[in-house]
Design a protein around this nucleic acid. Structure first.
Lengths: 347, 347
DNA sequence: CTGTTAGCGCCTTCAG
DNA sequence: CTGAAGGCGCTAACAG
């Protein structure tokens, strides 16, 4: 063994662990420089068609796959899009996600997903974490976040989309609906039918902020006290039933029940019927979201149709525009529609 | 900020990204070397408590956030875990996902999610893409994949977990259930009750391979022809109804209906009732999965309870062990249980 | 305990 | 059209 200069060589050789082919290996095999390979792979100008074809062939043979970590390091940006949703136990968020995914994926981005379970601290932690990846963009649910979140994101200068709810002053972009108005629409509809004693079944106060806005709309429509039962799991059918059982004990008994969502409404309707009540004869039921489920029911549920897929599609499109440096509308508010079913009727 | 946000070219490398503090900045501010900062940040041995505290303070003040792309580049591995599911429009996969997520997240990994819509080509493309991130592990649904997938993953030497289905020879690890046996259990149960003319409602053949195994089990149990109606969207309630309407036209009319899942079973039950049939008087209904929905029904659905959350938890735990270099059981098969409801009865 | 050195794989820049 | 040089932010390995 001679001295340290040999040692250096050996070191650098053994350092390349794994037999994974990199730009270097492809370049060597194709008899060109790394740069030429890089250009060929990325489909960039400046390589003769002949060489490009040859290089791509070699790359394929060597099973070359670019190291995105290295690329992102140089670019100071990855092609990850972080998406934060409250839950996936719910076709609602799955619907918006599906709407976004195609658009985002087709544009060459990958999605990193997390669920916060409606916890704003969890959301903040997750955002900070994703920022370490230098993501191309972020998607958050709702417009209410941890106090630090807004500054964190703006400082990082990451295009950000807030979905489902809207505000005049989003972090960056938002696409969603006016939940207070949605509550108002449902409330006005029921009031006009002649219902007098509304009640609400939903999640504990302070969990689902959008739902609280809808409740506010309901209150405005009825201009009256609105008894509310809060159940633990807003995505459970059984919880809706439980809420209704508790409400039916009240005096006076409500004549129309509004639910946080269709899940609860369905469970609630079952409970009302099980309690011997006729729907809509004895009591009205109004859901929210117009899930596929409700169309399969023997008695169609009166509910509010929310444009979930459309929110996803529009949101993703605007976000991509933002990434490209354009300036799409900062706030897009999509309309809701009341679907008149057979669970409510003129009083 | 908004307008200037993205006009800054992401690919301008000449200058260090504006305000974002790196190891270098923290080191300068703290009056130590980058390595010392690196060690302090990562909580690694070899820094005096005093210096460490000071460094952490400085890092926090500078709002330092490590560049994970750079770290992954050096480490030849990221802390991303790729998860591929067929769909999220379905509490089934959401349940397994929830089971995995806590474990994976608590161990310090982030999840990159994709849905394949049961398309094996999509799955392969996605896996190859995620491999470019040098993920810490991969999770796939089922044990049937694109022919190239197995080699691709093994060659990459990435710990891989297959969930939901089992096989004696997984790519790496698998945790799931024996779907053929699940079909057998359901079939035997119904046969013993005296049902003679079974039928099945499910997805088009070749889409959901697990479901086909269950059908095979059903056939074995009955040892008879098993008429099957294939509907387009297996996660739709309405599709179940459609399938049943078509089956009821057949002669002889089936006396018991097996469904791909509870979604379809629910829709199917509604359709049967709407057609004037009594359940279980005129016709039996058997679902699969034991979704929360079915517990809220006035007539409890006979179904197969699948340990979805448990699959996720066990799978994630084994996968983490694998990442640490241990050798957990390659194949874990979890039991299913028949839940006897009121939609079937002795004939 | 702390600092120095030498890259990780890729891409920008600039020179042929 | 092609290649050589240098660096992105971070860390393993090796001195002091």
């Amino acid at each position: 063994m001679r001295d340290s200069c040999l040692k250096t060589k050996r070191y650098s050789l053994s350092k390349r662990n794994s037999d994974r082919a990199g730009l270097r290996e492809v370049a060597a095999a194709a008899g060109v420089s790394m740069m030429t390979v890089s250009r060929a792979i990325r489909g960039i100008e400046g390589v003769s068609d002949k060489k490009r074809a040859e290089i791509l062939r070699v790359a394929k043979r060597l099973n070359y796959s670019p190291n995105l970590n290295a690329r992102s390091l140089v670019a100071e940006a990855s092609d990850l899009v972080g998406i934060s949703l409250p839950t996936l136990y719910n076709d609602v968020f799955a619907g918006m996600l599906a709407g976004m995914r195609n658009t985002i994926t087709n544009a060459g981005f990958a999605t990193v997903l997390d669920t916060t379970n409606y916890d704003l601290d969890v959301e903040l932690d997750w955002v900070q974490r994703v920022l370490s990846w230098r993501p191309a963009a972020m998607v958050l649910t709702g417009v209410h976040h941890h106090p630090e979140l807004r500054d964190t994101l703006r400082q990082a200068e990451i295009p950000t989309l807030e979905i489902w709810d809207v505000t005049a002053d989003p972090i960056d972009l938002c696409v969603g609906l006016d939940h207070r108005n949605a509550g108002l629409v449902a409330g006005n509809y029921a009031r006009k039918l002649g219902y007098k004693r509304p009640a609400f079944v939903g999640a504990p106060r302070g969990i689902d902020l959008r739902a609280e806005k809808r409740v506010e709309g309901l209150r405005t429509a009825f201009d009256t006290h609105l008894p509310a039962e809060r159940v633990d799991d807003p995505n459970s059918y059984a919880a809706g039933a439980e809420g209704v059982r508790r409400l039916l004990d009240r005096d006076p008994r409500p004549d129309v029940l509004f639910f946080l969502n269709d899940h609860l409404a369905f469970g609630g309707m079952m409970a009302a019927q099980a309690a011997g009540l006729d729907v809509p004869g004895d009591i009205g039921i109004v859901g929210f979201n117009a899930l596929d489920l409700t169309t399969a029911l023997p008695v169609a549920l009166t509910t509010i149709q929310t444009p979930r897929r459309q929110i996803g599609v529009t949101g993703a499109r605007n976000l991509l525009a933002r990434i490209k440096g354009l300036s799409p509308d900062r706030t897009v508010q999509l309309p809701v529609e009341l679907l008149q079913g057979a669970t409510t009727r003129l009083q």
